[in-house]
């Protein structure tokens, strides 16, 4: 609970972060940037859970626990994504989206 800040403001911020993440995922041309965008999306959810828990349902810790697990899973996700990106980079020396699209419809 932060003094002087209401839940609406916090949720607005997380929503903005979320949509920045989605927008970034769609528009970025670099795999690492896309990965960062995804992290934004995930972190928006993390903050959401914590904020909702703290402001609305302070007697149960469900949201907070959830957020810990999201962080953990996000880490695993990132680890995996980065390792695949590195593998790709070793083959084509690029992390640009345009370079990875050999498969077309």
């Amino acid at each position: 609970m932060i003094f002087g800040v209401s839940i609406y403001e916090l949720l607005t911020v997380t929503s903005i972060i979320f949509f920045i993440g989605v927008y970034g995922f769609i528009t970025r041309k670099n795999l690492i940037s896309i990965l960062i965008s995804i992290e934004l999306v995930l972190n928006a959810s993390v903050v959401n859970f914590v904020v909702i828990n703290k402001y609305l349902y302070p007697d149960m810790l469900q949201g907070v626990v959830f957020s810990i697990f999201i962080i953990a899973v996000a880490a695993a996700e990132t680890a995996l994504a980065v390792s695949i990106i590195i593998n790709l980079y070793r083959q084509i020396s690029s992390v640009e989206v345009k370079d990875i699209e050999v498969m077309k419809h």
């Binding site: 962080i71 880490a75 695993a76 990132t78 680890a79 390792s83 590195i86 980079y89 020396s93």
Partner: peptide
Amino acid sequence: QFKVGYYLFAILFLIFDVEVAF
């Protein structure tokens, strides 16, 4: 481009650090 070992340890750390968080 850097030696891949650095990334490898970074990834290992990432995983173990999260487990420590648990």
